[in-house]
Nucleic acid binder design. Sequence first.
DNA 1: GCGACAG
DNA 2: ATCTTGTCGC
Length: 243
Amino acid sequence: MTTVRVPAGWPATEEEARAVQDELRAKVVRDEPGPPPGTGRVTGVDVAYDDERDVVVAAAVVLDAASLDVVAEATAVGRISFPYVPGLLAFREIPTVLAALDALPGEPGLVVCDGYGLAHPRRFGLASHLGVLTGLPTIGVAKNPFTFTYADPADERGSAAPLLAGDEEVGRALRTRAGVKPVFVSVGHRVSLDNACAHTLALAPEFRLPESTRRADALCRRALREALQEAPQGLSQEPATRH
DNA sequence: GCGACAG
DNA sequence: ATCTTGTCGC
């Protein structure tokens, strides 16, 4: 597992963080359809925390998009870079997620985030932010509707309904399992909303959440447990050294 | 002004 | 996100 520092110049206040979002938002690419579902690789990313001990662990798990087999994975550990503030989640997760992606042996392909992209107060959620910083195609698949509204989609798997900010469609409530609460899909970077939903369905043949996020979630939780056992006092000031 | 609010 | 036992069910 690699160790990461909070980047120099990382925003320290909510005001600075919002200004970063307002500036980077213009760099989001929304006129590409993105990779076809079921081909190439798809990478799930997720993060687990221990706020008390100031430890954050990110995981990136690469799946073969056709078989959903795991073909690579990586983790990274760091210190918490920002408090949780609704609308500013990216500043809490991104430094460690970037380190985990960098530690991967190959190309990530499409990146699936646990959270939102376009569906965001300033239309620049975690998935959009990660996409702009890496240049990779990204989507967001969230478990909750955040502040947005939606009409319940039909009961069968595959039905969807617009996720709305007023009358603007910022994403979609997508039913991945019959009779189960939908997931909330939004565009990150270089992927269309239709394609983002198609990917989400292809990644969730059995459970509510995409296999990519289920795998990443399990891995970062396990890695956090192990990191806490090895260093119960929390992370040292200096990055880990190699011998 | 107050409450709600991805993870 | 995280705190947390058992329990119902495939």
